[in-house]
Design a protein around this nucleic acid. Structure first.
Lengths: 149, 149
DNA sequence: GCATAAATTTAAGCCCGCTTAACTAAAAAG
DNA sequence: CTTTTTAGTTAAGCGGGCTTAAATTTATGC
């Protein structure tokens, strides 16, 4: 088997597992927060990117600026994000998680990955080290990929 | 930093990246299919479970039986699933992917992992081997976890 | 057998996300 | 300085998902 196939196969198997485990409780958690999926997705993006503008949202989720603006408005109202004027371009807005928003999204993240603790417990110290090293390689590669875009 | 913290931190960083990327591809793909997210989620579940009933859907996604029934009806109409009577319990229905539904859901999976090819391209052969080894360790651990449950 | 429970469907109605269109305001282009 | 482009907001309206309530059909308990 070629290196590419090895990589692809291992990655897909892992991804399948991850999706199966993590997506399961996701909709339930989102529902329990009272937020809609689109609203939750915006919080997720802000958790990842720290800040973004209205157009970043519409671009990412492939919706109109109007829709993005409306969703952001609701999240501002509910206290999950703050919306400030961009000092460099007064047309633009800078969205950012509030502490409340961050706490909520962290709780969701924790819930989704809690099964990883059980998984870790089954690993020897040696295996754990190998996994950590590989994960760091992957995270770094993904980061460099992001910088290219 | 303890081994547990190392593991937890590395895993979370990677998961964050992973979620961010995969969700992105997913929403775009779902939109392009003309299906709604709930509809697509049902197809995803059927991809894993092969068959299920209406109540399985309502339970899994935490919606009413009525909602599950309506969603299923739309998927039957669009030709993505088939709905047959359960011979063992004529009240119940057995839902199953049609070939069309299966093709679509497989295409979605491929699209969701397409960015992994770009990621792989940035890795040296040596790093690739380390990653493959680690992924196999994780997959095996996840499997043993599953057997415990 | 009869009453009760379970699996699903249908209908009415609410809510929300999304779109288009019209508008404001600010930056960029010429 | 005027025109055009860009960023975002607002309003009206559509469509879809979800809920409750009521109905149907089949299984189960006594």
């Amino acid at each position: 088997m070629s290196k590419h196939l090895q990589f692809s196969k291992a990655m897909r198997a892992w991804m399948d597992m991850f999706m199966h485990r993590s997506m399961h409780g996701m909709t339930k958690f989102v529902k329990s927060t009272g937020l809609s999926m689109p609203q939750f997705s915006i919080l997720m993006q802000l958790r990842h990117k720290e800040t973004c503008g209205i157009s970043d949202i519409s671009e990412r989720f492939d919706i109109s600026n109007a829709a993005a603006s409306q969703l952001a408005e609701k999240l501002v109202q509910s206290g999950h994000i703050e919306r400030a004027e961009d000092p460099n371009d007064r047309r633009a807005k800078i969205l950012r998680l509030t502490q409340q928003g961050r706490d909520l999204i962290d709780a969701g993240f924790n819930e989704r990955v809690s099964w990883l603790n059980d998984l870790e417990a089954t690993l020897s110290a040696e295996k754990k080290l190998k996994v950590v090293a590989a994960l760091n390689i992957l995270a770094e590669a993904a980061k460099s990929l992001e910088e290219k875009e």
